[in-house]
């Protein structure tokens, strides 16, 4: 694996800044853009997966117990999951709280 972006010098770049390693967008922490964070209440979650279907970032997956949860490394805090959740199991809270 090549170096992470914040470690690369200009000499490490491939010609024309071509990316030769497929899938390295996964290194990009889009979660840093977030101003609001989703809080999942698993007592209300019915594991329907609607949040997973609606998430534009594709960052929601099932945890070990089968509940759906956002990966905060990628979650941009758009709130679509909270809006779509049938059982109101997801609440958006301000990051600073």
């Amino acid at each position: 694996m090549t170096k992470p972006e914040n470690m690369m010098t200009w000499k490490d770049l491939e010609i024309g800044s071509i990316v030769t390693e497929p899938g390295n967008a996964s290194q990009y922490q889009t979660g840093a853009w977030r101003s609001q964070r989703p809080i999942h209440d698993f007592t209300k979650c019915i594991k329907c997966g609607l949040c997973y279907l609606f998430c534009p970032e594709g960052c929601i997956g099932q945890n070990a117990e089968g509940y759906f949860e956002a990966d905060l490394f990628y979650c941009k805090g758009c709130g679509i999951c909270a809006r779509e959740c049938w059982t109101r199991a997801i609440k958006m809270v301000e990051e600073e709280e």
């Binding site: 690369m8 200009w10 024309g16 800044s17 071509i18 990316v19 497929p22």
Partner: peptide, 30 residues
């Protein structure tokens, strides 16, 4: 050296956040 080839996929003209853009420009200038 990197002709478009489905057997050897590459990304050309990707985006560069502030953490790497300056490095790409330095490489270009050199």
């Amino acid at each position: 050296p990197f002709p478009l080839d489905t057997a050897k996929p590459v990304t050309m003209g990707a985006f560069a956040p502030p953490v790497i853009y300056s490095e790409t420009k330095k490489a270009q200038e050199v």
